[in-house]
Amino acid sequence: MARRTISDYTDHPWRIHDLAPDFEVEDVWAFRTPGAGPGDFRAVVKAIRASGGIQRMPLAARFLFAVRWRLGGLLGWDDPASGTGGRVPSLRDRLPGDLLAAPREEDRDGVPLKAVYETDTEAVSELANRTVHTLMHLGWARGADGDFELLMTVLVKPNGRFGRLYMAAIAPFRHLIVYPALTRGWERAWADRNGASA
């Protein structure tokens, strides 16, 4: 796992750049995918989806997600009216015809992200609530060592001052607990994709 710079995301010719220029780059992380080639993006994403998601994460990460959903329920942060189609339009409303018609799979890992589009080199999911409208972009790129790797970029539009404070408050938890756990799980999912132990 490695944290990357914004340019590691912006330097690639992904279609997300034209679709979401009004979103800010919050985080960029790289995930190792040993042995993967230029055409293996969908295989990597499939392995991740099959790996069990949040339910397979370490206890500390699962606890943080549980606390967040509990607080969101108590404080009304996750009211459906504050989501896509309510407080904000979905990024799907911006898609050109080819992306709108492309097949996509919903994640089923306990996080209420909704699939926006998927191609042979990128996949985007979104989530909106009273704090933020966020996109999770997965992109396929050749790393500095020449091997292909998965880049996860989190893009955000915070909902006013409260949204910015919220994003700042959860940053240490994302960087110290959630992303490391996610990385171990995703890298293990790729290594174990054929039932082999890493």
Rank of each mutant, 00 (worst) to 15 (best):
T5W: 06
I6W: 11
I6M: 06
S7Q: 14
D8M: 01
Y9W: 13
D11N: 12
P13W: 08
W14T: 02
R15G: 03
R15Y: 09
D18S: 14
E26M: 04
D27I: 04
G35S: 00
D40V: 02
D40C: 08
A43G: 04
A47F: 10
G52T: 06
M57V: 03
P58W: 09
P58R: 00
F63A: 10
F63K: 05
L64W: 11
F65M: 11
A66F: 13
A66D: 01
R70T: 13
L71E: 07
L75V: 03
G76F: 05
W77M: 04
G86E: 05
G86N: 01
G86S: 00
R87Y: 15
R87I: 07
V88M: 06
R92W: 14
D93P: 00
L95W: 15
D98V: 02
D98H: 12
L99H: 08
E105F: 09
D107V: 06
R108F: 10
D109K: 00
D109G: 02
L113R: 10
A115G: 03
A115Y: 08
Y117E: 07
E118A: 05
E118G: 02
E118R: 01
T119P: 06
T121Y: 12
E122P: 10
S125K: 08
R130K: 14
T131K: 11
H133P: 03
H133M: 11
L135A: 04
H137L: 13
H137K: 06
L138F: 13
A141V: 05
R142D: 03
D145T: 12
G146Y: 09
G146F: 12
F148S: 02
E149F: 03
V154L: 15
V156W: 13
K157T: 14
P158S: 07
G160Q: 15
G163S: 14
Y166F: 12
M167A: 14
R174K: 09
I177K: 05
I177D: 07
I177T: 01
I177M: 10
P180N: 12
T183N: 15
R184N: 08
A189P: 02
W190T: 05
A191K: 12
D192I: 05
D192R: 13
R193A: 07
N194R: 09
G195A: 10
A198K: 13
